[in-house]
């Protein structure tokens, strides 16, 4: 046998490769059963990037169905509540070019909002309660309703069903607690006139810096 193989190197090579192919095929087959992945992990990842407003503006009943839609090749720019940031994040995840956000009619989609019920006008019909995907509206039949602001995602699904139009979307105001510094808006091409509001950058050049202290000493 060995002699036969040594005299026919081609046959020996084919045999060896064939055996290897069988062995690896076996391992791969075993692994595909043993380490089978349940569900589609990409859907989970996409769902994690979506803002979970469950607003349905993408045409799906909730964020997860849209995540499944994206996994099946749907456009990634149909989420106005997420804004361009979500589109960019999705593009990064899926390795595609980020298209512009398809905000439709809503121009100010980027501003976060919450629903507000004008409580004097509310007749207690519970229609908005049924419409809210977040259970963020509190109330009972013939009782005044109100919005739990912390739970409201601003999907505005409650605005349409209200028979007396007492629900409006109000932008969330920035408070001292939620405020944060803006990124400096500097473009190199044009000499920016923006003056950053931080004082450490107002430092003088080393030569200038010496001047006032010298003056002080002189004084």
């Amino acid at each position: 046998m060995i002699e036969l193989l040594s005299t026919h190197p081609i046959a020996a090579a084919i045999l060896a490769l064939g055996l290897l192919a069988l062995a690896f095929g076996g391992i791969l087959g075993f692994a595909s059963i043993k380490f089978k992945v349940e569900g589609d992990p990409i859907v989970e990842q996409i769902d994690n990037l979506l803002p979970q407003t469950q607003c349905g503006q993408c045409g799906h009943p909730g964020c997860r169905p849209y995540a499944e839609g994206i996994a099946n090749g749907e456009a990634i720019n149909k989420c106005p509540p997420g804004g361009q940031a979500t589109v960019d994040a999705l593009a990064g995840l899926l390795g595609v070019d980020a298209p512009a956000l398809d905000a439709g009619e809503a121009e100010d989609a980027d501003i976060p909002k919450v629903a507000y019920i004008r409580e004097d006008e509310c007749i207690g019909c519970t229609k908005c309660i049924q419409a809210c995907p977040m259970d963020a509206i509190l109330g009972a039949a013939k009782q005044m309703h109100t919005v739990i602001v912390d739970e409201c995602t601003g999907c505005d699904l409650c605005v349409e069903p209200c028979p007396v139009d007492c629900i409006e979307m109000r932008p969330i105001e920035t408070t001292v607690k939620t405020w944060h510094w803006e990124k400096p808006n500097i473009s190199w091409a044009s000499e920016s006139t923006s003056t950053p509001n931080i004082i450490a950058t107002d430092k003088l050049t080393p030569n200038d810096a010496q001047k006032p202290s010298k003056d002080d000493r002189a004084a």
Partner: peptide, 20 residues
């Protein structure tokens, strides 16, 4: 920011990024 010869408002970038 104090030593930057290009006067880049570095700390403001960091503060903004931290806030975001």
């Amino acid at each position: 920011s104090f030593v930057c010869p290009s006067n880049i408002p570095l700390v403001q970038y960091y503060r903004s990024a931290k806030g975001k």
